[in-house]
Nucleic acid binder design. Structure first.
Lengths: 220, 220
DNA sequence: TGGCTAAACATAGCATCGCTATGTAATGTG
DNA sequence: CACATTACATAGCGATGCTATGTTTAGCCA
């Protein structure tokens, strides 16, 4: 080695790409480096091209998601925590919808799946606690249930962020999760209360929205 | 008017775009018209640009979806039919994943939402039948439940088609729908049987897959 | 310490993208 | 039958991602 890469440049470019994504500005090779003083070649020395930069941005998205989920306070009610994790997942996605889209529109796996694994594992931990406290049946497959919870959250936030469903459709999250968790053995009434406690507080309908969804008279 | 547009050219271009999408070829302005004999300007006279063509392709996708759902045979068991509609939805999406992605990655509404409405309405009809036959409680909101079913289907097919979840994860559809429909008043055992009857036959795990999903050791 | 080497970085140019300006051919209407 | 308006073709523009080439810089070892 003769000359060493500056890691700050790498994070600078990722940060700038994420920022432009959030601002809904077109993020191109030349627009990224504009103003930073670095040349377009930096993208190639650090990421090997635009695809590599997108992958790095994707990784950053999963890292932020894991960090966001880590801030969810745990309570003695694991079912409530489960719903709260789901709400935090959607809150994170909706506060940065374009980054969320980038996270999932690539066809290849992540370079370092640890962040994504950690996100799912935070759900698994809550499910295990629910089993330990007797809320869920002992035969519940924690990873499977976590995946199913993820599927619901992704479907909801995806349809809301890309347009077809209005933001109010997020309210569907609570009844779906309630049905799912009730099916795992929880008492219906208690489950409903726990889910609504964990789900609602984060983003009440009527929250000011940065990116208004498209007018959708056709969809419920 | 002096010279009239040829509608065949319009459908030809849409068809060709959908075909190239299915073949995973890059679909560009010049590659679409290549070999058809028409010039690049045709895209502008018929669609006003590439955005217009994408919108037309999107519309075609929803039309095909509605047609696919219309072929689902109705049985005396409305819950089974509901699951069968969900399975047909996913089968349609997975047999043409890129078209499915185009259908949902636009930020604006469809020109003619009738096809999309019809797709959702086929779910609503099955739910109404389930209410009429006493499988679901009378106070179930049919449109809300149809939307929730859609959310689950979209979340599942979206995560499977874009990579993160392996194709086997489609099996999660049955337990989620079972939990959802059981929460509407159906008897658990009976609901599970109906859902598995409607869900499974269409695409059993192990079905040869056109577009193998990315290797995902990190995800369940 | 100083020169050699390889990596980091800048510049210029290429192929291709969507799009528009301009010109030509064709058809329905008066 | 002549006109006007629309469909269609060609050429070129700005911008995209990427690569080839040259320049500068920093680390290693004699």
């Amino acid at each position: 080695m003769v000359r060493t890469k500056d890691p700050a440049v790498r994070t600078l470019l990722i940060e700038r790409a994420a920022q432009m994504l959030r601002a809904r500005e077109p993020v191109t090779l030349r627009s990224i480096v504009a103003g930073t003083g670095v040349s377009t070649m930096a993208v190639y020395t650090y990421f090997g091209g635009m695809d590599g930069l997108w992958q790095a941005v994707r990784q950053e998205g999963f890292t932020r998601l894991a960090a966001r989920l880590a801030t969810v306070p745990l309570t003695p009610d694991p079912v409530r925590d489960l719903a709260a994790l789901g709400a935090a997942y959607m809150s994170n996605a909706l506060s940065n919808p374009d980054l969320y889209r980038v996270m999932f529109d690539a066809g290849f796996a992540l370079e370092d799946p640890a962040a994504a694994d950690e996100s799912l594992h935070s759900l698994v931990r809550a499910i295990e606690r629910a089993k330990d406290t007797g809320r869920f049946r002992p035969d519940v497959d924690a990873v499977a249930l976590a995946t199913q919870t993820w599927v619901i959250g992704h479907g909801l936030v995806s349809l809301v962020a890309t347009g077809p469903l209005p933001r109010q459709a997020l309210d569907h999250g609570a009844p779906i999760l309630t049905a799912l968790f009730t099916g795992c053995g929880d008492t219906p009434d208690r489950c409903r209360q726990s889910v609504e406690l964990g789900w609602h507080p984060d983003f009440a309908p009527g929250t000011p929205q940065e990116h208004p969804s498209a007018p959708t008279t056709a969809y419920p």
